[in-house]
Simulated scan of single mutants.
Amino acid sequence: MATMNISLPDPMKAWVEDQAKDGRYSNSSDYVRDLIRRDQIKAEKIANMQRLIDEGRASGISDRTPRQIFEEAKAEFERRKGAA
Protein backbone atom coordinates (compact mmCIF):
# COMPACT_ATOMS: atom_id res chain seq x y z
CA MET A 1 0.00 0.00 0.00
CA ALA A 2 1.32 3.44 -0.89
CA THR A 3 1.72 6.25 1.62
CA MET A 4 0.52 9.81 1.12
CA ASN A 5 1.10 12.72 3.45
CA ILE A 6 -1.51 15.46 3.57
CA SER A 7 -1.72 18.75 5.43
CA LEU A 8 -4.89 19.70 7.26
CA PRO A 9 -5.85 22.72 9.32
CA ASP A 10 -5.97 21.88 13.04
CA PRO A 11 -9.80 21.74 13.25
CA MET A 12 -9.96 19.28 10.34
CA LYS A 13 -7.18 17.14 11.82
CA ALA A 14 -9.08 17.02 15.12
CA TRP A 15 -12.27 16.02 13.27
CA VAL A 16 -10.54 13.15 11.49
CA GLU A 17 -8.98 11.94 14.72
CA ASP A 18 -12.35 12.13 16.50
CA GLN A 19 -13.93 9.96 13.79
CA ALA A 20 -11.32 7.31 14.46
CA LYS A 21 -11.75 7.57 18.23
CA ASP A 22 -15.50 6.87 18.17
CA GLY A 23 -14.80 3.26 17.17
CA ARG A 24 -16.22 3.18 13.67
CA TYR A 25 -12.74 3.46 12.15
CA SER A 26 -9.60 1.88 13.49
CA ASN A 27 -7.47 4.91 12.63
CA SER A 28 -7.39 8.15 10.67
CA SER A 29 -6.27 6.40 7.50
CA ASP A 30 -9.33 4.14 7.56
CA TYR A 31 -11.56 7.20 7.82
CA VAL A 32 -9.85 8.94 4.89
CA ARG A 33 -9.98 5.76 2.77
CA ASP A 34 -13.73 5.50 3.48
CA LEU A 35 -14.25 9.11 2.41
CA ILE A 36 -12.37 8.45 -0.83
CA ARG A 37 -14.37 5.25 -1.52
CA ARG A 38 -17.62 7.15 -0.98
CA ASP A 39 -16.46 9.92 -3.30
CA GLN A 40 -15.52 7.34 -5.95
CA ILE A 41 -18.98 5.76 -5.73
CA LYS A 42 -20.62 9.18 -5.95
CA ALA A 43 -18.53 10.07 -9.03
CA GLU A 44 -19.47 6.76 -10.69
CA LYS A 45 -23.17 7.40 -10.03
CA ILE A 46 -22.92 10.92 -11.45
CA ALA A 47 -21.08 9.62 -14.54
CA ASN A 48 -23.75 6.94 -15.04
CA MET A 49 -26.56 9.49 -14.73
CA GLN A 50 -24.79 11.75 -17.22
CA ARG A 51 -24.43 8.81 -19.62
CA LEU A 52 -28.17 8.12 -19.34
CA ILE A 53 -28.97 11.78 -19.92
CA ASP A 54 -26.70 11.86 -22.97
CA GLU A 55 -28.35 8.70 -24.34
CA GLY A 56 -31.79 10.21 -23.81
CA ARG A 57 -30.87 13.45 -25.53
CA ALA A 58 -29.26 11.58 -28.43
CA SER A 59 -32.38 9.44 -28.91
CA GLY A 60 -34.33 12.41 -30.22
CA ILE A 61 -37.87 13.58 -29.67
CA SER A 62 -40.57 10.98 -29.17
CA ASP A 63 -43.80 10.99 -31.13
CA ARG A 64 -45.60 9.48 -28.13
CA THR A 65 -47.71 11.61 -25.83
CA PRO A 66 -46.68 12.09 -22.19
CA ARG A 67 -49.67 9.92 -21.21
CA GLN A 68 -48.46 7.08 -23.49
CA ILE A 69 -44.95 7.31 -22.04
CA PHE A 70 -46.36 7.23 -18.51
CA GLU A 71 -48.56 4.23 -19.26
CA GLU A 72 -45.64 2.33 -20.79
CA ALA A 73 -43.45 3.12 -17.78
CA LYS A 74 -46.22 2.06 -15.41
CA ALA A 75 -46.71 -1.23 -17.31
CA GLU A 76 -42.95 -1.89 -17.20
CA PHE A 77 -42.90 -1.20 -13.48
CA GLU A 78 -45.78 -3.60 -12.88
CA ARG A 79 -44.09 -6.24 -15.04
CA ARG A 80 -40.85 -5.98 -13.07
CA LYS A 81 -42.69 -5.94 -9.74
CA GLY A 82 -44.51 -9.11 -10.72
CA ALA A 83 -41.27 -10.81 -11.77
CA ALA A 84 -39.58 -10.10 -8.43
Score class of each variant (00 low, 15 high):
I46W: 00
R79P: 00
A20F: 07
V16S: 03
S29I: 04
A47H: 00
I69A: 14
R67P: 02
M49A: 08
D39P: 02
S29D: 13
L52M: 12
V16F: 05
S59Y: 00
E17C: 06
D54E: 08
E71P: 05
E72N: 11
D54F: 00
S59I: 00
R24A: 11
A20L: 07
M12T: 14
E76F: 00
R67M: 12
R80E: 07
P11M: 06
E17V: 15
P66H: 01
A83K: 12
Q19D: 15
R37H: 08
D63H: 05
E55N: 07
R79S: 05
D34V: 01
I6Y: 03
M4E: 11
N48I: 00
Y25C: 03
T3W: 09
I61M: 09
R64F: 03
T65K: 08
Y25G: 01
R57V: 03
E78D: 12
D63P: 00
M4T: 14
S62G: 01
A43H: 04
E44S: 06
A75W: 00
K74G: 02
L8A: 14
V16C: 06
K74S: 11
G60F: 03
N27K: 10
G82L: 07
L35T: 04
A14P: 11
S29F: 04
K74P: 01
R51Q: 05
Q19W: 12
A75D: 08
E44L: 03
A75F: 02
E72G: 08
I41V: 10
K42W: 07
M49N: 04
S59D: 01
I53N: 03
D18C: 07
K45V: 09
N27T: 06
F70G: 06
E44C: 00
R64A: 09
S7G: 15
Q50I: 02
K81E: 13
V32D: 13
I36N: 04
E72T: 10
G60L: 09
I53A: 02
G23M: 00
T65H: 04
D39R: 14
L35Q: 13
R24L: 11
G23W: 02
E78M: 12
K74W: 08
M49F: 03
A47E: 01
E76Q: 05
L35A: 11
D54Y: 01
F70L: 10
E78N: 12
V16R: 03
R24D: 10
A84C: 09
E55S: 06
P9L: 13
R80I: 01
Q50R: 14
A58M: 01
N5E: 06
D30W: 13
A20R: 06
I36R: 04
Q68F: 06
D22L: 15
R33V: 12
T3Y: 10
P9E: 14
Q68H: 06
A2T: 09
E55H: 05
F77C: 11
P11T: 10
P11D: 15
R80S: 05
A75R: 07
M4L: 15
R67Q: 13
A2E: 10
R80P: 02
N5S: 14
A14L: 12
R67D: 09
T3K: 14
S7Y: 15
A43D: 02
A14N: 14
D10S: 15
S29N: 13
V32C: 10
G82P: 04
L52C: 05
V16K: 04
D30E: 15
D63G: 05
K81P: 03
I6L: 09
D10F: 12
E71S: 01
L35M: 14
R79V: 01
M4F: 13
E71Q: 11
D34T: 07
K21P: 06
